[in-house]
Design a protein around this nucleic acid. Structure first.
Lengths: 184, 184
DNA sequence: GTCTATATAATGATAGAC
DNA sequence: GTCTATCATTATATAGAC
């Protein structure tokens, strides 16, 4: 039952945005009564915290999968530009901006993801290791903006920005497997 | 009177975010009655459209000023990273995501700003003219993310990302005045 | 655990007097 | 133009029966 509410809330967060995640809407999506929601989760903030925890867990799983793919750097770019992931990241950010009670949960998750992506970038791009954190930030911010603007129908400049990323990904170093650059 | 409501609404949008821009809160900030707001603006969407138009106008003015400064490229970066501007850009984006009625106003303004920034980048960076739109997107997206995360207390990677931008701005070409590179 | 009913606050908006 | 009064809707919850 808890899971059904969390599923519904996450779906609405992805499809409609954080502002649409209300008790009645979530309950309707779950096919349950809104009052039941308050039985399983004392407050809406509790529900949102549960949603955020699950989103963060799944993001880490997908990150680990990307790391062991044939082209890890491209896989990480694809993970960040995936429309649903990027829009979810934006919604979480907006949620953190306006709801103090769940801010820590979101910010801590984002910080953790930033740090492990940076560690991975250092290993995958040894010659740019000193700029790894900056490269991760540039890629993450660009990915989110591309997804958000595309959803709004604004695509001016997108092809150009993607071309720069593709150029970066096509470099020899970017296509080196991790075990070749950082053997055990 | 109209201007007082617009002033108040913009201030709340900057300070509290788009979700806080309600009729009662705006009216209180303006020192007027909420019902008067509906006399001057038929709906809240009308008020928001007026706010957006003024924000877009002022953004264009500040852009023109940046162009004639001694270091136009740095001035443009400063304009985009200014905390209030960057957070306002994020709030407008979030607003466009959830309010169909004002989406066009926001998206059209963003598109216009993207295009003129790209034109300026082409002139200021003739050797990278082909990537100007991409460079503008990267700078704009990074600037917004830096401002938003700083507001949330998340600063991991920021110094690193800023170092990459500073390196770019320190290149000889980046410091060439426009009249030297593109004489009349 | 799940139901009906209800409390309380905020929202966008309107009616009609002055 | 500005006021008081009001409405309909939605929000997060809570009380208490079954």
């Amino acid at each position: 039952m808890r899971a059904r509410f969390v599923d519904a809330a996450e779906a609405i967060l992805r499809e409609e945005g954080g502002h649409a995640v209300s008790a009645r809407v979530v309950a309707e999506k779950a096919g349950l009564k809104a009052q039941l929601l308050f039985y399983y989760f004392r407050t809406m903030d509790d529900l949102l915290r549960a949603v955020i925890r699950r989103i963060n867990e799944r993001r880490l799983e997908r990150f680990e999968q990307a790391l062991v793919s044939p082209e890890p750097l491209r896989a990480l770019w694809d993970l960040n530009t995936d429309a649903s992931s990027a829009i979810l990241a934006i919604e979480l950010n907006a949620l953190a901006n306006r709801r103090e009670a769940i801010r820590a949960e979101i910010v801590d998750g984002a910080r953790q993801f930033r740090l492990i992506q940076t560690e991975a970038a250092k290993r995958l791009l040894p010659s740019s290791a000193g700029s790894a954190a900056g490269i991760v930030m540039i890629a993450a911010s660009l990915a989110r903006m591309l997804a958000n603007e595309t959803a709004l129908g604004l695509t001016e400049g997108h092809a150009d920005a993607i071309a720069i990323v593709e150029q970066f990904l096509a470099r020899p170093e970017s296509n080196t497997r991790e075990e070749e650059t950082a053997p055990i």
